[in-house]
Design a protein around this nucleic acid. Structure first.
Lengths: 191, 191
DNA sequence: TATGCCATGTAAGGGGTTACATGATTGA
DNA sequence: TCAATCATGTAACCCCTTACATGGCATA
């Protein structure tokens, strides 16, 4: 039920098309909310039918038409109502940890390889987030003030990934895998 | 599709009823997998129909009968197959951060109060996890070895919460709310 | 020539949530 | 007496995923 409210939050700060929203879910909101394009288009349809958002068709030449959505009064009220209620605590459902939990059926190096590939994903994301943080720090003071709350959510993303990486270090130590040798197994086989 | 595999992992280490599984999802797996009792019973029915698990009925006096499930060969194969494939990266969908992101529609003290109530949840969980960690540390060496992988998942839970709490400190500083005065507003109003 | 971006959708099916339902025992 | 624990489920609904579908423009 919260994708709706995530969309309302985004539309409150700016009118947008489904495609715009998708990009924002992959961008400024990407570290704490995920949504696929199908989800978004379906949800927009429902919200429009429910009167929470208006739609204006913007024809473009050489491009498909854009349907630009805007909050209605009812949408704004729904958003304020949702904000006034306690947010539901987050539910973790992490397949990687299920795998590790049952990992005695696998070899330690298989587990280490899995951790390693996730690590690469997280390291890349961390770079992106730190880049965004840099850009926010370089904004003039009043602009920075406008980004105060999104900045705090970004900080969550950064601290989260850093903690994940520290955990991955622990795991790799525990699995006792020589990471530095990983790419040279065939060249320098253990004697 | 992964609840199924979480159940397979749990049944691999021990036969269990739906109710047992529920307790384990709230216990040793609680920090990385959540499942409701309806979800579990429905899933068990499907898995039984698919031949992944067997069921034995254990009558009890003064208690409802228990249906105890056990992996079949097909179930074990499915589990091994799933383990051999890369785990899907985790998807964050955190309503609290959506709220903070759109929090300019709310007052800073409302936001701080929300963070505060989540903090209480997390602090309690951290205590529980640290307690479990202590108990694992006090086990004899061979028992400790058996808990090696679940222990690593527990470490993830601990590091995760600690990083959340550090973030909450940052947020509370940024919101500039005097936390120590929170419970004494009526007694000592700001002059 | 192929990939990726722009921009929108539908349809089927699977998964998850909410509400409803039962009923005895034990401890505060 | 009230709530919690033990122990199971059904039914309706909503949400999300997967696959399918279109089609032009720009860049490598």
């Amino acid at each position: 039920m919260s994708l709706q409210h995530a969309i309302l939050v985004l539309l409150e700060s700016d009118d947008a098309s489904g495609y715009d929203l998708l990009k924002r879910f992959n961008g400024s909101m990407g570290h704490f909310w995920h949504a696929s394009h199908q989800q978004i288009y379906q949800q927009l349809k429902k919200m429009h039918a429910a009167g929470l958002i208006d739609c204006e068709l913007q024809p473009q030449d050489k491009r498909p038409d854009r349907k630009v959505y805007r909050l209605t009064t009812a949408g704004r009220e729904e958003l304020l109502h949702w904000l006034s209620q306690p947010a539901r605590p987050f539910k973790y459902n992490d397949a990687l940890l299920v795998k590790l939990f049952g990992g005695h059926l696998l070899g330690d190096d298989d587990l280490a390889a899995e951790i390693h590939s996730h690590r690469e994903l997280y390291e890349e994301r961390l770079k992106t987030f730190l880049g965004i943080e840099q850009r926010i720090h370089q904004l003039p003071g009043d602009e920075q003030a406008r980004w105060r709350l999104p900045y705090l959510t970004l900080r969550r993303g950064i601290l989260e990934i850093q903690s994940w990486l520290r955990w991955a270090d622990e795991v790799e130590q525990a699995l006792d895998v020589d990471v530095s040798a990983e790419n040279s197994v065939e060249i320098h086989p253990t004697a």
